[in-house]
Write a protein that binds this DNA or RNA. Sequence first.
DNA 1: GTCTATATTGAGATAGAC
DNA 2: GTCTATCTCAATATAGAC
Lengths: 200, 200
Amino acid sequence: MSERRARASTVDKRNRLLDATEEIMLRDGYAAVSSRSVAARVGINPPLVHYYFATIDDLFVAVLRRRSLRNVARMAEALAAAEPLTQWWRLASDPRGSALFIELIAAANHRPALRAEVGEVAREVREMQIERLRSLLPEYGIDPEAIAPALVAAAMQGLAFGLVQDQGAGYDTATADAAAGMNRLLSRLEQRRAAAVSGS
Amino acid sequence: MSERRARASTVDKRNRLLDATEEIMLRDGYAAVSSRSVAARVGINPPLVHYYFATIDDLFVAVLRRRSLRNVARMAEALAAAEPLTQWWRLASDPRGSALFIELIAAANHRPALRAEVGEVAREVREMQIERLRSLLPEYGIDPEAIAPALVAAAMQGLAFGLVQDQGAGYDTATADAAAGMNRLLSRLEQRRAAAVSGS
DNA sequence: GTCTATATTGAGATAGAC
DNA sequence: GTCTATCTCAATATAGAC
């Protein structure tokens, strides 16, 4: 019965359109997303895309919503894990997720509807991170007065984005050295925290 | 004689086209750059843009080259200044320059000709920063074995890009707190270095 | 739900007159 | 150098048949 693929339900088709959109964004950038390109990838006709997503803005917003629902949950898990900073770093420097967010952010810069959504997600995630860092930094032996939680959060995300971007584009900016250095730093911090927490 | 503006020389016109391109990129994003939009801003006809820059890729590459010539020189100055890290930070977190680079990098992600140029500039700047950090980090009281120069360089740039991006887009991600924290950190580091250098 | 057909808009680029 | 005119292509989106 491999031939007789059941007619995809509306929800399935929506998800396949979102998958296709993500793949196009990752491979060719957000500017390559169009009703034509998405339709071609899914194997339907361009106008049908508009049946599911009235405008291209709606499509981008849906991609963002689906991703960020997952990612907010994953960030919450990471921050509650045994080695929070390390898990956060793994999540932030995951090429797939980050590369997609870079495209969404770039797209949002000239799509107001998308910008509002991105802003909301960014705010929520950052708030969660900062709140967690308030109690976490002392455990890692870092004085929150000396190094502000907001600074740590912004640096983690900015660093991860930069590394993923440079690696993805193939820029020769010593990304391997930076990543290795970050991993060494993280393991030292986790060791320090483990000792401090068990000792208290 | 304010009325009788002299016919702009070829070089002037080229520069005016580059200025217009930058302004459009900053205001509406790189995707808004076209022979039509640039021509309208300068007050000439679209085909004339192609006379000066055969393709839109050439136009983007020229914008990048002009900017990066300035910025590489400025980075070299910053790294040689009395307070190198502070000057570097000022330069990296300058909204105008950074916002433009964000657009160029996003554009480069789907314009191979531009990508090659961006990669070359990124590599050159990063190499310069890392080389300088090798001798600089110990002066700031930072062990380069513990915190790798490549990591510091990537973090500085990533942090600055993130802050500028979030501020520009109006995202409420505690950017003011992060910036204030960075300034505090920098002044402590500069004090430490001043003491260490004068004391040796 | 899915298609064909099409309206509209704007892009990049070129030809050729002046 | 600068213009008008135009070619070609692809984008978003809608109308309407099936």
